[in-house]
Amino acid sequence: MTAPQQVSRPSAGISSAQIKKLIALTSMALPGAIWLILLRYLPMFGIVIAFKDYRIYTKAPSLINNILHSKWVGFKNFTFLFTTTDSLRMIRNTVGFNLLWIVLIMAFAVFLAILLAELPRKRIAKTYQTMMFFPYFLSWVVVSYFVFAFLSPDKGLITVAQKNAGLMPTNWYNDPRPWPFILTIANLWKNTGYSSILYLATITGIDATQYEASRIDGANRWQQVRYVTLPHLRPMIMILLIMNLGKIINADFGLFYSVPMNSGRLFSVTQVIDTYVYRALINTGNVGMSTAAGLFQNVVGFVFLMGSNAIVRKVDPENSLF
């Protein structure tokens, strides 16, 4: 640390202070970087498993030897995703629900954030926030118990209420029709509060003079929202949009598996790529096929993320992710 002071040499273009800074900042990034290299980059060699008929090399089994001695099979491991007649249905469910929810959560969250910001009594607004944020912290397994408490075919609150009212109770876990709504409600319930707080944070950061100026121009409440608040929310909306589009082909496994209690009758609505792969491979544990499915999702996600980022960069250069 007490290195002797050196006179900077103009020809080298870097002063000793700069070197010191470079070393210090690099050392700061190092713990994270080492972690990334060890736990993320190092296992990436495993991607080749997607293109191999993975077998165990009996003479000296280890991951590397197994991979090296397995045969290349090209894209064979990927085909199971597309040869089933359910391919379209599961891709539709995955992408469709994702798109729907991206829009719905955004609209709903922006709406709630604006309401919260407009409330004059901040203490109550804070209480609302606290309550709305709560579901975000729960895992889907826990949420599936919440849902089950309402919909259980023999003890559920709603089922029992239907019985008591003399109605034929709905067998919720065997009737696919209400499930687009149940899944949507569950997802909105869990994620809206979090998003709305992100938006609220942005709103509270808007320079108050802009509202004053617009008011002097004769803008009413609604016009202020329309011409001041919404434009300021745009960057946040764009960033969340790009990030979400990058995950468009990845479904939230817990939501589609645990919440419907893994019920077969609901597959027309609840079968998504992730659950299909899980159910297809749970009995065989075929590593090649599962790696292939993961790689497929990663590549599609990457394309979507880069694509949507490129589009945003074109129409709205300031708000692209990078």
Binding site: L36, F45, F322
Partner: peptide, 29 residues
């Protein structure tokens, strides 16, 4: 003003999109 800033940004960004899969990660860990 950090010269390796781009590199480290890239280093972490890639891992948001790609991973090596369960078994290799498990074995490394």
């Amino acid at each position: 003003d950090f010269k390796l800033r781009k590199f480290f940004t890239f280093l972490s960004f890639i891992t948001m999109m790609f991973g090596g899969g369960l078994v290799p990660t498990y074995m490394v860990c």
